[in-house]
């Protein structure tokens, strides 16, 4: 009995330490954004009063508004397109499956093995030949359809009751209507999970925009944050404010969709 008790206490200690380590760098970033660079270096860990100064300095140095608008534009458009295309495919592979479609599906899964960096040179040449550099299209096309999302939707579509489809057919709905009116509303948590993952990946993507977004006016938030470290002197306060602004959207989305995210992932792992 004492042994189980000791184990329990040990478990709480481990979990508390791991949680603190997980949260600390983010807490430090938050505090640094409100302090002067000198104070940050001294290890100050409480809120400061320099937030407004850091804000003004950051906006004066960098096109933050433009980068924010761009990042939102690219990420939202990519997420919407990817959700529609991949869920259609996942639904198609599961509901109408036969051996030909299953074969196509296993070939698609091979694309999971293709490292993005391996395709970057041909993709860059492709988009630059098509004069599509610095465009939203170039940002979204390479990751608009991913084997991971298709697989996730397919796995979750397995739980979609076939009776609903049959009942809908009797009611005279056609196949496209069944997908949009029956499948999408039922699979809300899967969509939420897929949305969280896709939006985060799109927002955080750094390599691909760095390759194709060459003009100053198409800069994204991660690129802007990375640019801030180029100089010799680092103003920690300003830098961490930029990091904070860059992390805020994904953190908010994660908190809003956390519950459905867990549900959607559970369905995908089954």
């Amino acid at each position: 009995m004492t042994k189980t008790k000791r184990n329990r206490i040990l478990m709480y200690i481990v979990l508390i330490i791991v949680s603190l380590v997980s949260v600390f760098p983010l807490y430090w970033m938050l505090m640094a954004a409100t302090n002067k660079s000198v104070d940050v270096s001294r290890g100050r860990l409480i809120p400061g009063t320099a937030l407004i100064d850091n804000w003004k300095a950051l906006f004066a140095q960098q096109p933050v508004q433009r980068a924010m608008v761009n990042s939102f534009k690219y990420a939202v458009i990519l997420t919407l397109c990817a959700l529609v295309i991949c869920s259609l495919a996942g639904y198609g592979f599961e509901i109408y499956h036969d051996k030909h479609k299953d074969l196509v599906f296993s070939i698609l899964l091979l694309a999971m093995m293709v490292p993005f960096v391996a395709t970057i040179v041909p993709l860059f040449r492709m988009f630059s030949a098509a004069k599509l550099l610095d465009t939203t299209i170039a940002f979204i096309l390479p990751t608009i359809s991913t084997p991971f999302l298709i697989m996730m939707f397919r796995q979750n579509a397995r739980a979609f009751p076939i009776d609903i489809i049959e009942a809908a057919r009797i009611d005279g709905l056609n196949e496209v209507q069944i997908f949009f009116r029956m499948f999408i509303p039922t699979m809300r948590s899967t969509y939420a999970a897929a949305m969280t993952i896709t939006f985060m990946n799109a927002w955080n993507n750094y390599l691909w925009p760095k390759v194709i977004m060459q003009g100053e006016e198409s800069i994204t938030m991660p690129m802007l944050v990375a640019n801030l470290t180029e100089g010799y002197v680092t103003d920690y306060g300003v830098l961490m404010l930029a990091v904070l602004l860059c992390s805020l959207p994904t953190v908010i989305i994660f908190f809003l969709l956390q519950k459905s995210f867990a549900e959607g992932i559970t369905g995908a792992v089954k």
Binding site: S22, V23, P25, L26, W28, M29, M200, W203, N204, Y206, M221, P222, M223, V225, A226, L228, T229, L239, M240, V243, C246, S247, T250, V251, I253, F254
Partner: peptide, 14 residues
């Protein structure tokens, strides 16, 4: 899970 919500560039710089 919170660290996963930060972007790769952000955490690298942190």
């Amino acid at each position: 899970f919170l660290p996963c919500a930060t972007s790769l560039v952000s955490y690298a710089i942190i």
